[in-house]
């Protein structure tokens, strides 16, 4: 674990990065760091969350995020239940609040929620007694993604402060972009967003980032190049004319990457559209691409979040309490 700190994470939920202090973010990252080592051992399982119930409530399909949260909970010894929109009353017209009340009556300790609409996880969190982790809400936030990205960068570069990070792609609709901007700006990185004008707003400047419309200048001197997934339905004339035109101007290939620092890291939250936002050789470049490492960090970050939030629960056992430090 990194240096001991006097900070703590004094919040019941993790709904977003906005509003968290640098100290609070550091607490989460330091705790995650410890779990990275543990996850590399043969015996990965702990009993910290034994007896605790974690419900993964996914109103939007997801494989990697759900699996990552499931694995994180199980490695800590929690009972993990997955609920998805397809298999439940969520499709039968039950309102979000009714669902929340129903689940609340079952006394879960942690709810991990993904929802296609911004703010839905905040709404649900108001109605339940347990800790809530936002696993992505509409175009709003995806805090554990930003934490795992930050952890990946910090382990590779030793810091976040002062790094130039270029986030490229569909910034406008991206919760990953928003959470990353909030986190990286708070931690002192210099953040740029790069996208065609239809997929970014000049108002992003107010969030402390610089807005670019061409990859050449946007990537210039960058330490980190973070590519975002572009929904293919947005590429058929509504926001950009075609996949072909988008890749020509905004797809990451070696030619565009040449503008960044020679050792710049390439990141992508997945799942990738090879040949759309990222060239396949670049994505697989073992010297530059940390895309698989991001996935590994994801489990550690989610274990840390579960650890810290359950440590706050009023019925936490004395040995479990205060793990947030």
């Amino acid at each position: 674990m990194a240096t001991a700190t006097s900070h703590s994470y004094p919040h019941r939920h993790l709904l977003g990065i906005e509003g968290l202090s640098a100290g609070e973010i550091t607490v989460l990252l330091d705790k995650s760091e410890a779990y990275v080592d543990q996850n590399r051992r043969v015996d990965k399982k702990q009993s910290l969350l034994r007896g605790r119930t974690q419900i993964n409530l996914f109103f939007e399909s997801s494989t990697r995020t759900r699996t990552s949260f499931e694995l994180a909970g199980k490695r800590l010894g929690a009972d993990v239940i997955n609920m998805s929109a397809e298999a439940s009353s969520l499709r039968k017209g039950e309102t979000l609040i009714d669902t929340a009340m129903t689940l609340n009556a079952m006394h879960p300790d942690v709810l991990v929620v993904r929802h296609p609409h911004s703010g839905a996880v905040n709404l649900l969190a108001q109605k339940v007694d347990c800790a809530v982790i936002n696993a992505g809400d509409g175009g709003h936030e995806h805090p554990t993604q930003a934490l795992l990205d930050a952890l990946t960068i910090r382990r590779r570069r030793g810091r976040l402060d002062g790094l130039i990070v270029a986030i490229c792609g569909d910034i406008l609709h991206s919760r990953v972009a928003r959470s990353n901007i909030q986190l990286l700006v708070t931690m002192g990185a210099r953040v740029r967003v790069v996208a065609p004008p239809t997929l970014v707003s000049p108002l992003f400047h107010r969030m402390g980032v610089d807005v670019y419309h061409d990859m050449g200048s946007g990537l210039g001197g960058a330490d980190i190049v973070m590519m975002l997934r572009l929904q293919t339905e947005r590429m058929q004339g509504a926001y950009v004319p075609s996949v072909r035109e988008y890749f020509h101007f905004y797809g990451l290939d070696y030619q565009k990457l040449a503008a960044a620092k020679p050792d710049a890291l390439i990141m992508h939250p997945g799942p990738m559209n090879r040949g759309v936002e990222i060239d396949t050789d670049v994505a697989d470049d073992i010297d530059r691409s940390v895309i698989r490492e991001q996935v590994e960090m994801g489990v550690a970050v989610r274990m840390a979040c579960l650890d810290i939030l359950t440590g706050h629960l009023s019925n936490a056992s004395p040995t479990d309490a205060g793990t947030a430090e």
Partner: peptide, 8 residues
Amino acid sequence: ELALRLGL
């Protein structure tokens, strides 16, 4: 700006 931050 507010809509942007809220993702709406």
